[in-house]
């Protein structure tokens, strides 16, 4: 075997280890990835079919101004997409993002393949970076698949109509599409908290289920605490406090205050969690 001067085997370069494409394919081959992405496509279709059973009943879906999202869901493709996002944002997307980001390192640890990757050697920081970027890419893909399918199916079924809501004037389809993209963008930013938390847990524990479940549980805990108004200003520090601020993007004029604060909160938390994850992983003894 020919050896280069730096002491490594021929053809080995730390920056060439664990290519993004390889990791992407590695994750794509997993059944949970396929199922999660498949469900993102399936969900809007299920909702669409469910709406076909609409008996025209007049039951009240809630009293707040945004309950109208439900009633308006069938008024056009954009509204249908908005509804699909609305119903999945609070839990489904959280679980999916936690799955992609929480499972990625912990599952390698539980299979025992993590130590072989590190013995290649893939530099630890590089391993985490690749894992994180690919997990985030899959999370984004899930979000886009959900919105894309809903938009396509909704438009085919209900037509290309303006975006309606009772809080704001009707938005022209192009303007509505922009708002929808802004909503998706904000949701993606908010979900970074879940991504950060799940990833940190993924690095700390060897149990993939623990990382995913832990992230979802903490998210739910934060949501519950957010319901307790007695906490006052402390609620602003909860990672979920601004998770519904995207509704403000639908009003006219657009309310960005809470969106901006939500971005600050989410990015801070995500940076903190990722920073801890890298700090921990580059120092820890791999015993799995």
């Amino acid at each position: 075997m020919v050896v280069t001067d730096a002491g490594e085997a021929r053809g080995y370069r730390p920056s060439a280890t664990m290519p993004f494409v390889a990791e992407f394919r590695r994750q794509a081959s997993r059944r949970r990835t396929q199922l999660a992405l498949g469900f993102m496509v399936l969900l809007p279709l299920i909702i669409l079919i469910a709406f076909q059973f609409d008996s025209g009943g007049d039951d009240d879906n809630g009293r707040n101004e945004f309950a109208s999202l439900v009633e308006l869901a069938t008024s056009g493709g954009l509204n249908f997409t908005l509804f699909s996002i609305f119903v999945s944002a609070s839990f489904l997307l959280v679980v999916v993002v936690a799955l992609f980001c929480g499972d990625t390192v912990a599952s390698e640890a539980s299979w025992g393949s993590l130590r072989y990757l590190l013995a290649i050697p893939v530099p630890r920081a590089r391993l985490l970076t690749v894992k994180l970027v690919v997990a985030l890419a899959y999370s984004a893909l899930a979000l886009l698949l959900l919105a894309g399918t809903a938009l396509l199916a909704g438009t085919l079924r209900y037509g290309w109509s303006p975006l309606r809501s009772t809080v704001a004037a009707e938005l022209e389809p192009t303007e509505g599409l922009l708002r929808l993209l802004a909503v998706l963008g904000y949701l993606a930013v908010v979900l970074l908290v879940v991504a950060g938390l799940a990833f940190l847990l993924s690095v700390i524990t060897d149990a993939a289920l623990g990382a995913v479940g832990g992230a979802v549980l903490l998210w739910i805990l934060s949501s519950i605490l957010d319901q307790i108004t007695a906490l006052g200003a402390l609620r602003d520090f909860l990672p979920t406090h601004f998770s519904t601020a995207w509704l403000g993007l639908l009003s006219t004029p657009v309310q960005t205050d809470d969106v901006v604060r939500g971005c600050i909160s989410a990015i801070s938390y995500a940076t903190l969690f990722w920073g801890l994850a890298f700090w921990r992983f580059t120092r820890k003894d791999i015993t799995s």
Partner: peptide, 14 residues
């Protein structure tokens, strides 16, 4: 940990 020279070692550990 992570030394490039590890690439010259093949391993079965644990």
């Amino acid at each position: 940990p992570g030394s490039p020279v590890l690439s010259r070692i093949g391993a079965l550990v644990e």
